[in-house]
Design a binder for these strands. Structure first.
Lengths: 238, 238
DNA sequence: AAAGGAAATGCTGTATACAATAAATAGCAT
DNA sequence: ATGCTATTTATTGTATACAGCATTTCCTTT
């Protein structure tokens, strides 16, 4: 591929175009979730267009999609930037996860089988490995992937999609408010959860998921870094 | 303003542009939800662009947003058409509503106050009126608005947004699978619900909402009209 | 007459050019 | 020297032109 790519700017043959778009979307999305693009970072259309070798048109489409998922913020005439989640948003997101992910556990337990359990264990293993090798950002994304896969196993595609969006935003929240060296999810929580699901114990899994999510939320330090416009009144005692 | 508008095609002064886009989005969205645009109807970019007096660029943006909300389906090289919800999707949507809307009721009850109750009663009144005057489509939309407003009162913006999307899709489902003359929501259900919420009885409201949603789902006739490519094998007995 | 193929048309996907606006900077006046 | 204004620059918003697939229609062939 690299030959044709560098040789001359040939037009991608349409089918490739769609895949390329999806790949670029994933690339940007992953970069945000893994905090290689930090909250507040500006995403200039020209720059992205040049990096990925397509025109601004395609970039705009991708940015708008990311904006609807609330990973980037689109301010009129100012362009796109990586969303900086507020404390309120963080609370909403974790409350939503409590409601939805916990509510799904009984369904997941009912539909669990050996193949699914094996797949989940493999995911959990990769996550631990990433954490051990110091790749915290990657671990955060893998953890999100785990939760999403779990939701998909419930059989409800709509709710799974919601969970996917909540997990993306959670990763962003963790990247901002999380402590360094302390991943949201405890190392063996996910394995324990798989255990409960394998035995079909939906209620137990539900309770465990609830504690799991509470633990993540509790691990955050919700100090809003107000680097913009520091409140001088407050700082210098009115 | 009308002078300048009709006199010559002046370029909208930018701020108006955003509002116009939003207005067009609402117009198309409402038309779909109220079934003035029926499922399967094609939405050609040129046609829409001409009707609303903007170029295809803006139309595409709106169509993509509607596609992410699953109100329209975007098939590559074929363009946009109004989504025809499948029976499976309908089930997913109503299951999701059960989980989320019911789960929200205790929060709503806790935050309910006189002003909110009055607003909700007014919405319920308008809905009944629309139903009485035979405007079923409008009533469906007003009913959806009621459920969305309710979710917003929970204080969780994220979940409220999810409910909004679920209600849009529900309207589409009702428009397709609902019986004529039988609106999903019973006439006085919403008023009863407001009553429970006003007294702060969250659990009662939750149970009522659950029955309410079950009643709507039960009122649907889930026959998938397969008007495209009728299966002649099946029809004429193989 | 029916079926298959080829040309024409309609519509979308992409890029690019242009217009408009917000930020940055320099110049001027006080 | 500081504050305000004007100009310049950087970047987005919109329209339009062009290229490519899909569908349809008409012609040819069996």
């Amino acid at each position: 591929m690299s030959d044709a790519q560098t040789a001359l700017k040939r037009r991608p043959t349409e089918k490739e175009g769609d895949e390329r778009h999806e790949a670029i979307y994933r690339a940007v999305s992953d970069a945000i979730v893994e905090q290689r693009l930090k909250p507040g970072a500006r995403l200039r259309e020209d720059a992205l267009a040049e990096v990925f070798g397509i025109s601004r048109t395609g970039i705009r489409k991708i940015l708008q999609r990311l904006a609807l998922e609330q990973l980037v913020t689109l301010t009129p005439r100012r362009g796109a930037s990586v969303t900086r989640p507020t404390a309120d948003e963080a609370k909403d997101v974790f409350d939503a996860r409590q409601l939805i992910e916990c509510g799904l556990m009984p369904d997941v337990a009912r539909r669990m089988n050996a193949a699914a359990a094996a797949e989940l264990r493999e995911m959990a293993r990769q996550e631990r490995q990433a954490l051990r090798s110091g790749q915290q950002s990657v671990a955060i994304r893998l953890s999100a992937d785990f939760h999403v896969r779990l939701a998909q196993l419930s059989g409800n595609a709509t709710l799974a999609e919601f969970v996917e969006r909540l997990c993306s935003r959670s990763s962003l929240i963790l990247a901002v408010y999380g402590h360094r060296g302390h991943l949201g999810c405890e190392s063996h929580d996910h394995d324990d959860l798989i255990g409960y699901l394998e035995t079909g114990n939906g209620e137990r899994a539900k309770a465990f998921m609830s504690r799991h999510l509470k633990a993540i939320e509790a691990s955050l330090s919700m100090v809003e870094e107000e680097e913009n416009v520091p409140d001088l009144q407050q700082i210098f005692g009115a």
